[in-house]
Design a protein around this nucleic acid. Sequence first.
DNA 1: GTCTTGACGTAAC
DNA 2: GGTTACGCCAAGA
Length: 114
Amino acid sequence: MTHKLSKTDRIMKTIRHIPMGKVASYGQIADLAGLPGRARLVGKVLREADAELSLPWHRVLRSSGLLAFAKGTKQAIAQSELLQKEGVLISHCRVKLDHFGWRPSIETLMMLGF
DNA sequence: GTCTTGACGTAAC
DNA sequence: GGTTACGCCAAGA
């Protein structure tokens, strides 16, 4: 079988599984995608991905809940707006992972191939 | 096949 | 919690 999904494909699939109102870090996405430590790959995928893919990029942040982009950038603002619209509270470009951090359930983990 | 880049992570200070 | 430095590895040229 030569139809193994590319690493990038797995990442995109994982991102689509992020529930609304929750946020996940790049490292977590990579880990769930079966690529522990490959957080940079996640970023690369999102950058190359189009908006038509329905990838909730705004639900992906850096570690510790910091926004994925530097403050002042157009996307950083858009991200905070989108997150707050989903019910995620942001304080100083930071998201409280204690309350909004994505906690994948067992079924979700199995669905991702765990 | 080699070099460069990259929506990052973690450690150290 | 901010900043600096280094590491990791896939994809593109």
